[in-house]
Amino acid sequence: MSAAARTRPSAIRSRLGNRLRTIGRLLAHFATRQKWFLLPLVLVLLVSAVLLVATSGLSYVAPFVYSIF
């Protein structure tokens, strides 16, 4: 799949839709079976997760780069 295909507006919309549905299912999961007490915490955690999703996908060892410090 090309990079262009991944960033088409329709693709972005569908990805956003998938994420929102996953969030919905997650909240439903925690809303049942004696897990309600985790719900507020899960909500806070989800908000903070935006930061991580935005910066994911990098390797920890940089090839061809020798650190100076």
């Binding site: 991944r6 693709a11 569908s14 990805r15 998938n18 994420r19 996953t22 997650l26 955690l45 989800l46 903070s48 997760a49 991580l52 999703v53 994911s56």
Partner: peptide, 13 residues
């Protein structure tokens, strides 16, 4: 939260 939660979406996409 950064990774594992979204696995099934990522697989589909």
């Amino acid at each position: 939260l950064g990774d594992k939660l979204w696995v099934m979406d990522q697989l589909a996409e």
